[in-house]
Design a binder for these strands. Sequence first.
DNA 1: ATTATCTATAGATCTATAGATAATGC
DNA 2: ATTATCTATAGATCTATAGATAATGC
Lengths: 223, 223
Amino acid sequence: MAENMAENTAPRRLDRRRERTRNALVYAAQRLLAERRTEVAIQEITDLADVGVGSFYNHFDSKEALFRTAAEEALEWWGTLMDRLTADLDDPAVAFAQSLRLTGRLHRRHPRLSRVLLSVGPELARSERGLAPRAHRDIRAAATAGRFRVDDPDLALAMTAGAVLALGALVHAQPDRDDASSADQVALGLLRQFGVPEAEALRICSLELPDLARLDPIDGPYG
Amino acid sequence: MAENMAENTAPRRLDRRRERTRNALVYAAQRLLAERRTEVAIQEITDLADVGVGSFYNHFDSKEALFRTAAEEALEWWGTLMDRLTADLDDPAVAFAQSLRLTGRLHRRHPRLSRVLLSVGPELARSERGLAPRAHRDIRAAATAGRFRVDDPDLALAMTAGAVLALGALVHAQPDRDDASSADQVALGLLRQFGVPEAEALRICSLELPDLARLDPIDGPYG
DNA sequence: ATTATCTATAGATCTATAGATAATGC
DNA sequence: ATTATCTATAGATCTATAGATAATGC
């Protein structure tokens, strides 16, 4: 207990300084990932982060390690956001659709985060972080509850990931496109695909969404 | 005419030698793309292709140019294959579904080509080559003919591309998965999504496919 | 004689670290 | 006194080309 107190109070400012440097590197890496410019010299990364080159090696072994971390933190952040926004929904079909509709709106509201997620590609479906585990859980629960007519949840998850990625790419490629209605269309299409009756699918996809302002991050680089 | 003859006969062997070198480079680039190892030295590429480093610059200005060409040629090759296999189908809904079902079978039958296509990512939907222009044409035709209930063909195309990519990634990630039935499931799901009545969608997705051996290339690196 | 390829390499760029400097802890 | 950062750089690696060699044309 005393130890714990000591640990909590002792080198706090030093830890925070260390954290600041690390975060600056991760944030710079996310900017580069979003631009798909990962073939850069380490010095370019540290310049972007405004830290010395040497500091890089205090935190990461290689560019690849940094970019991996940068993508994982974005996925984590996204997953947490979805949890926060769908925590009170107990119908898995609704939770699934809400997450998709919210994610579709993320592309314009947080273009950088969106582009980092898109840079992950279809492995999105296999990641332990982000939307994948949540969508997988919702799909299985909905199948068990008889809400979805799905007998291959892995395939259903893959289709979901593909739809999310394709929608994101489309929204970025067509700046005039209405992101909200496109997202709702995509959610509707997936529900149809999963055998939800048309009327019910339409109902689910026109439910009210949580306040969009709550899409904004609690803190962190996207705030 | 005489000139033409001369041009046709004159430096033929030289042209073929030049072509051979170029093809070796493109083929090497495709192997690397398939492994997602594009951050390699030019010398590694030329070693793989078994040509001198200098030869690289006889054909391409940069690695990026080579990789771009390598992806485009794979897309072109794929599109041509689909045309060859679906030329005689005049129902656009059927042509659409057949292409998807065949493409799904491509991942195991031609893993390298498949991985090159997957490396292109969601821009697949925006490429002037490959499945995209054909699928776009089929989707619009089917919508006009009242076969698909689709009012946003761009979005429908994006969903199709997403499904193709996600299925490919899944098939590669799960070596035991039945690629044929997964592909048919995906095609069925998209038809459902596009408002094709269940019975009709099922019928379309159980139509006989062209002989799979015809998936094999006429010539070229995938042969 | 012409054209393409190959070999060897100058110069540019990049990685990873050593040692100096700055910030914090005690 | 300790820990993290920064600056400067040795050595490795990479790009792009010059000049030599090989293949083909005529």
